[in-house]
Design a protein around this nucleic acid. Sequence first.
RNA 1: GGCGGCAUAGCCAAAUGGUAAGGCAGAGGCCUGCAAAGCCUUGUAUUCCCGGUUCGAUUCCGGGUGCCGCCUCCA
Length: 467
Amino acid sequence: MALQFYNSLTRKKEEFTPLDPPRVGMYTCGPTVYNYAHIGNLRTFMFEDLLRRYLNYRGYVVRHVMNLTDVEDKIIRTCRETGESRESLTARYTQAFFEDLDALGIERAEAYPAATDHINDIVAAIKRLLEKGHAYEIDGSVYFRLSSFPDYGKLSHFDIAKLQSGASGRVDHDEYETDDVRDFALWKAYDEDDGDVYWETELGKGRPGWHIECSCMSMKYLGESFDIHCGGIDNLFPHHENEIAQSEAATGKPFVRYWLHSAHLLVENKKMSKSAGNFYTLRDLLKMGHDPLAIRWVLLATHYRQPSNFTFEALAAAGRSLQRIRDFRIRLSEVRQPDGDDLRDACETCETRFREALDDDLNISAALASVFEFIRQVNVQLDQFAVGRGGAERALALLDRLNAVTGVFAPPIAEEAPREVLDRVAARTEARRNRDFALADAIRDELAESGWLIEDTPDGPRVKRTD
RNA sequence: GGCGGCAUAGCCAAAUGGUAAGGCAGAGGCCUGCAAAGCCUUGUAUUCCCGGUUCGAUUCCGGGUGCCGCCUCCA
C-alpha cells in the first residue's frame, strides 16, 4: 500500500505524490509568541513532527517551514497592558517555544521565519494583489476582495453566500468598514492603540494582517505551489481558506496540494480552559514532575484526526509503557551468547506492520501496537535464551529506526551506579550467597530508598535508577 | 441557523459488513529464597440510544442524546 493522507481539501484519503520527489515542501502554522504554548498547541506540533519524521523515514527530503507570528492583535494588546516592547515579549516567548520543542524531542524545522522579518515581502505581496484587483484600500488599510476569488470556500466547504458574518459573536462590526463584511484585512492602518508597533511602508504606516504572512512566507521558502500544509483544525477556516485566496489570486497557480489538519485535545474529557482549571502548559506538567517523554507519548499516541483525551491516568500509563520499552532494550543489550535466533523474521514483520500502519494516514496506534507485539514475542525468546547477539543487535537497530520516527523507543539514559552503590550491591550478593536473606533484603530496601532498584538475573544483579 | 468531527472494556486507544488490536491498571498462575523484570491465563466489551437496509452492523442509512470544532484573526 502506498503512503496516503487524508486531504481536507477533498475530504478523502489520497495517495501522496510530491511535486518534485524526493523533495517535499511542508508548511505548518506556528505559534503566536505572546505566551507559553499549551498542550493542545503542542499536540498539533507533535503531529507535524511525526509527519516530517515519517516522511524522512520514507526517504523523502523534507523542507519544513514553520512561521512565528510576532505581530498580531493579541501581541499588541499584551504589550499595551504590560508596557513590554513587542520585540522583548516575542523574543522571550520564542525562546520558550523552542525550549518546549526541545523538552518534547520535537525536531527542528528547516526554517522558522518570523512575520516582522518579512515586512517587505508582505508589502510586495499586497501590492501584487492590489494590482490584480483582488484587494482595495480604505483609510490606509488594505482588504482582500472575496468577490474577486470565486473558489473561496473550497477548503472549508462553506458556501460563501451563506456565511453568516459574525455568527460566532466575536466580531465587532463597527471595526469594519469594508465593501463586504466578509472581506479580510491584508494590511492594517496604524491606530493609536498600536503604540510603537508599526512600519512605514509604501502602503503607509501600519502593520500586516495575520493571514498574509503565511501566504507570503510559505511561497517564499517553498515555492508558489508546494506539497503539504498543516495546522490545527480550527485554522481551517478562515485562516487557511484565506491563505488559499491570497496565494492563488496572486499567482494563478494551485497553492497547496495536501492540507492536513489535526483535531483538538480535551483534558479529562473537557475543553481545556483556564476557568475550568484544566489548562496546562508543558511547563505546568514538568513542574509537577511528569516525564517529558511520557507527555510526548500521550500527545502522539492518538491518531491526529481524532479528538484526543488527555488524562493524568493516561500520562501515568504512558510512563509505564516507556519503562517496558526501556527494560526491553536493556535485556537486548545484555545478550552475550553468539548463537541463537537472528530475529530477522520478527524484525521484518514488525517493521512492515509499522510502516503499513503509518502509510495509512499516520495510524500511529496500530504502528505502536506492532512494536508491542514484537516486544512480547522477543521477550519470550529472551526468557528461553533463544536470541543470539546478532539478533539482539538487529532488534536494537530496529528500535533505533522506529525511534527516529516516533521518538519514544530511545534507549534509557544510562546512569552509572556510583561506587558506594555497587559496594552495597556486592555486599548483598555476598549475603545472598551466605543465605542471609534478611541482610540481603535490608540492603535492597536501603538501596531502593536511595533510588536504585536491584533485579536479580541469571547473570547476576542488575542495577537500575528508579527516579 | 450553516458546515464538520467524535461516542469502543476501570483508563488511554485501533480496526472491521461476518460477534473487536495494542498499552496501562486489576485478578490468578509460572519463574524467584522473597522480589523485580519477563511470560501464561483472565475482562461472554449489549462497540451511546432507537429504528432501517442486510443472511449478518459495532462498521452502511435515518432519527435521537451527549461532547467537541469552525462560521473573520483560537493548535
